[in-house]
């Protein structure tokens, strides 16, 4: 019960200092009381908070090596500051600039092809009347989401193998020469994005199916009475009704544009395809983890994180304006 009723708090006749002193004492007894009574919830909270501090916030402190000449022996605190030097190095490096562009290009293509796929799939599922068929199809198309990227990569590598792969087998039926897909830069993006759609379109359709399920059925009934056909109902009722969901999901996607599933890229790319496949995170992995240039790699990571942060925050505030629904 929260009664919105303003009223005057009884006035005391003490001096300000006394009052302040009393308040402090009151606050202190209240706090002691509170912790005596509620200590259990703090015990429950502690492991989670300690975990966050230790595994996510402590690395943020370590981010300072992006501005330092870091050496393992001197440690984070002992390494000398170098200012923005690493960022200068990064933006002077063709590799890093290429990685940034590749990240943006892959994300943009993913947005163009990967984003509509689950929406179209959801609309198609919605038009299926046979419940058994619908359920079976859904069960199957959700499955790849739960398969690890190593397996996905294994399947892709096998399927696109020049001698044994099914893709080249089929190409062979039409009399063409086998293509060494995974070594050709021009083939990397189509394969990567196609794999993404194959893996995630089904699972991604759940959100839109739920939105469709939320459409008031009487809208369709009145449309039937008005003589609309299924195609018209889809365009005039279903799609406008789920537009808020589509917009929110789109904004989330744009906010996450710097996040490319680099696990799969690491598993699929090779030096021959770096030209199109190397993204910021794979660049960081090679420079930092494999190459040992922690400070430069950390700088690249910081750049990535800051851009991502700005994008996500912008996306969240835009979505708030659109729907009065915050994403978090």
């Amino acid at each position: 019960m929260s009664d919105e009723h303003t009223a005057s708090i009884p006035k005391t006749e003490k001096s300000n200092v006394e009052v302040r002193h009393d308040r402090r004492n009151e606050r202190l007894t209240w706090l002691i009381d509170h912790f005596k009574r509620e200590w259990q919830i703090y015990v429950m909270l502690a492991p989670a908070i300690i975990w966050f501090l230790l595994f996510l916030y402590k690395p943020m402190y370590g981010l300072q090596i992006a501005f330092k000449d870091y050496s393992i022996f001197r440690g984070i605190d002992g390494s000398p500051w170098v200012g923005w030097e690493h960022f200068g190095t990064l933006f002077g490096s063709d590799q890093f600039v290429r990685a940034v562009w590749n990240t943006i290009k892959i994300s943009a293509l993913n947005l163009l092809f990967g984003f509509p796929a689950p929406i179209i799939l959801a609309l198609m599922f919605n038009e299926i009347l046979n419940a058994t068929f619908k359920k079976t199809a859904q069960t199957i198309v959700y499955l790849p989401h739960f398969i690890s990227s190593v397996i996905i990569a294994g399947i892709v590598i096998t399927a696109f193998s020049p001698s044994a792969g099914i893709v080249n087998t089929i190409i062979g039926w039409f009399g063409f020469e086998p293509i060494y897909f995974l070594t050709k830069p021009e083939w990397f993006r189509p394969i990567f994005i196609g794999t993404g759609i194959w893996q995630e379109a089904g699972f991604g359709s759940i959100v839109f199916l739920a939105a469709i399920a939320g459409v008031n059925p009487s809208l369709y009934e009145s449309a039937v009475v008005d003589g609309a056909n299924r195609w018209q109902m889809m365009w005039k009722i279903t799609i406008p009704s789920i537009m808020p969901t589509i917009l929110i999901m789109l904004i989330i996607r744009i906010g996450n544009i710097m996040e490319v599933s680099f696990e799969l890229i690491i598993l699929l790319y090779q030096p021959a395809t770096y030209a199109t496949a190397d993204v910021v995170n794979t660049f960081i992995y090679r420079q930092g983890i494999q190459g040992g240039q922690y400070d430069i790699a950390a700088a690249a990571g910081l750049f990535n994180a800051v851009v991502a942060f700005v994008l996500v925050m912008t996306a969240n505030s835009i979505s708030k304006r659109f729907s009065r629904t915050s994403l978090w």
Partner: peptide, 19 residues
């Protein structure tokens, strides 16, 4: 906020690994 912030900002691969 302490929890939610980690969804928006991440120190990244290298600091995590060093940590």
């Amino acid at each position: 906020l302490l929890v939610a912030f980690t969804m928006w900002f991440n120190a990244g691969m290298i600091p995590f690994w060093l940590n």
